[in-house]
């Protein structure tokens, strides 16, 4: 649905060049919620703004729903007719909502409809539908200044959906909201994704956002995508940075000197098997559980467990092999203690 190919963006100011995007390839499948995560300055904001050409990429292509937007005419501040048409089918939600304070909620939602050229009655009907969809029917006549942050973002979402887009871009939509409101907005995005088959590309600096709504994710650093893929695949990928960030176990203990510490990740039905007791019985070893956590990520149950086996890594080759045979992902943690052993 959204594909970027070797996208670069270089800013030039007073002879200095700053590379915001250094060759980004992104592939968002139809109907999925795709999250791009990274610290500020990683280039994720530039990336999402390049998708609807609010920023012109320096090179590379952006294709949304089969249309190559980079080929359409128009500068950053003044788009050509074709690009404007294409943008009407791409909704965008902003961190600071960007609602017009001079218009009521209903009039704000009607703005894109005015741009499309619907008449008054059609606009009213559509705006009412959209406000119903985001649960703000009773606020239609309020001004943005009278709403809470979460309500403003709901208006922003209703407005973004006015042109019946197939794609919704979300630029840190929940970053200005408190945790509870964030959850309700994310739930709304997820519902819209499921009800309308909307493809959502969101950028965020919060791992929790990725964890709670995304099907796929990409980690950006220094203008590049360091890692990307479906969350379930990422969690199964040994040494995945995103998986570690999504599911940190760092606060757990690191075990005793001379022992081997394993990190076991299981998904789906794997926890149904009593692998810990099987391991203990089969190999007659004492297993020390250092920590464990189970969470639902992308709608699937995922667990992670950190265990300690006596003896060095070399002594535990067979038990590790046994665990891997059970379909579990096993990482041997190289701790300072482990290295000594």
């Amino acid at each position: 649905m959204i594909t970027t190919t070797d996208l670069t963006k270089v800013y030039r100011s007073r002879g200095r060049e700053v590379t915001a995007l250094a060759g980004v390839d992104l592939h968002v499948r139809p109907g999925e919620v795709y999250g791009v995560v990274g610290t500020s300055g990683a280039g994720k904001s530039t990336l999402i703004r390049c998708v609807n050409m609010l920023e012109r990429p320096s090179s590379g292509t952006v294709t949304v729903d089969g249309v190559d937007l980079t080929a359409l005419a128009g500068g950053e501040n003044r788009a050509g007719k074709d690009l404007r048409e294409a943008r009407r089918r791409i909704g965008m939600v902003f961190q600071h909502f960007n609602l017009l304070s001079s218009r009521t909620v209903q009039q704000n939602v009607e703005l894109p409809l005015e741009i499309i050229g619907l008449d008054r009655t059609q606009r009213r009907r559509k705006a009412a539908e959209l406000l119903d969809l985001v649960g703000l029917t009773d606020k239609a006549r309020s001004y943005p200044g009278q709403l809470s942050g979460g309500q403003k973002q709901r208006v922003g979402i209703a407005r973004a959906l006015a042109g019946d887009p197939k794609v919704l871009l979300s630029d840190e939509a929940t970053s200005a909201l408190d945790p509870e409101t964030t959850r309700s907005i994310l739930k709304l995005l997820r519902d819209l994704n499921e009800q309308l088959g909307l493809t959502v590309l969101l950028i965020t600096h919060e791992m929790d956002v990725i964890k709670s709504v995304c099907d796929s994710a990409a980690l950006m650093r220094g203008g590049r995508v360091v890692e990307s893929g479906a969350l379930t695949d990422l969690l199964a990928r040994p040494g995945s940075e995103l998986a570690r960030e999504l599911f940190p176990l760092s606060e757990f203990g690191t075990g005793h000197p001379g022992a081997t510490v394993l990190e076991i990740t299981f998904q789906g039905d794997a926890p149904a098997q009593p692998f810990v007791s099987q391991l203990a019985r089969t190999y007659q070893i004492e297993i020390n559980i250092l920590g464990a956590a189970v969470e639902t990520i992308a709608g699937r149950m995922v667990g992670r467990m950190r265990v300690e086996l006596p003896g060095s890594r070399h002594d535990n080759v067979v038990p590790i092999g046994f665990l891997r045979e059970q379909g579990l992902q096993v990482d041997v943690i190289e701790t300072a203690n482990g290295a000594v052993a």
Partner: peptide, 18 residues
Amino acid sequence: VDRGLVEAVQAMGGNTWT
């Protein structure tokens, strides 16, 4: 006028006159 509002209108496909 907040630059974000200008961007919002541009993202909706509005022209300069709008």
